[in-house]
Amino acid sequence: MLRREMMLGTAGELTEHAQMMRAMPDMVHHDANAITVDAGHSGKLVWKFTRAEKFEFACLQPGHYEAGMTGTVTVK
């Protein structure tokens, strides 16, 4: 099992951070918009959406973003 990460952000922010994660693969996040969870563990990310919009999220562990571990949240 592999470490996972969830980060909310714009497409540009996610792409930029995915590049940073390739350079620093051991980086761990506990930010307001991101969480890293080790294999066999769980975590919680609580975010209050304040506007109607589509938001993107992704796992930015090296290779995961590129493999398609992304999605969107639509707030109406």
Rank of each mutant, 00 (worst) to 15 (best):
E13G: 13
D38Y: 13
T36Y: 05
V73S: 03
K54D: 11
R22W: 03
G9L: 02
V37Q: 02
V46W: 04
K48Q: 07
A39M: 13
T50W: 08
R22G: 01
A52R: 14
K76V: 06
V73M: 06
R3D: 12
K76W: 05
L2M: 08
H29C: 12
A67Y: 05
Q19W: 00
F57N: 01
E53T: 09
R51K: 15
M1R: 14
L60T: 05
H17Q: 14
F55P: 00
G43P: 01
S42W: 08
R51N: 08
G12V: 00
T74N: 13
R3I: 13
G12D: 10
A34R: 14
H30P: 01
R3S: 12
Q61P: 01
P25K: 00
N33D: 15
A34Y: 10
T74F: 07
R3H: 11
K44N: 03
P62K: 06
H41R: 15
C59E: 03
L60A: 05
T74Q: 12
T15K: 13
E5L: 14
Q19H: 05
M69W: 12
E16V: 02
K76R: 10
K54L: 07
A11E: 14
L45Y: 01
M69L: 14
V46M: 09
V75K: 05
Y65M: 04
A67H: 09
K48H: 10
Q19M: 04
M21Y: 05
L2R: 13
N33T: 12
A18T: 03
V46P: 01
L2N: 14
E5I: 09
M24S: 15
D38W: 06
E16Y: 01
V28I: 11
S42N: 14
M6T: 08
P62C: 06
E16F: 02
H29Q: 13
W47H: 11
I35Q: 01
H29P: 01
G40S: 07
M69V: 12
E5V: 10
V37C: 07
Y65C: 01
E5G: 11
T15Y: 04
D26R: 02
M69R: 07
V73Y: 07
F55W: 13
K76T: 10
R51P: 00
M27T: 15
A18R: 02
V28Y: 09
Q61N: 13
E66I: 04
M24G: 08
R22Q: 11
R4A: 08
M7N: 04
K44H: 02
K76G: 09
M24I: 14
E5M: 15
R3F: 07
F55Q: 06
E13T: 11
H41K: 15
E53W: 12
R22V: 10
M21N: 12
L60C: 07
M1L: 14
P62E: 04
A23L: 11
T36Q: 03
M24F: 14
R51H: 10
T10I: 07
S42Y: 09
M6C: 12
K76P: 10
L8Y: 06
M27I: 08
S42M: 11
P62N: 05
V46G: 05
K54C: 05
H29F: 15
G68T: 06
M7P: 01
R51L: 09
A67D: 12
A18W: 00
L45F: 02
V37Y: 03
K44G: 00
T10Q: 08
T36W: 03
G40H: 07
G68C: 09
T10W: 09
M6G: 04
M6S: 02
T36C: 06
L60P: 04
A39W: 11
I35R: 03
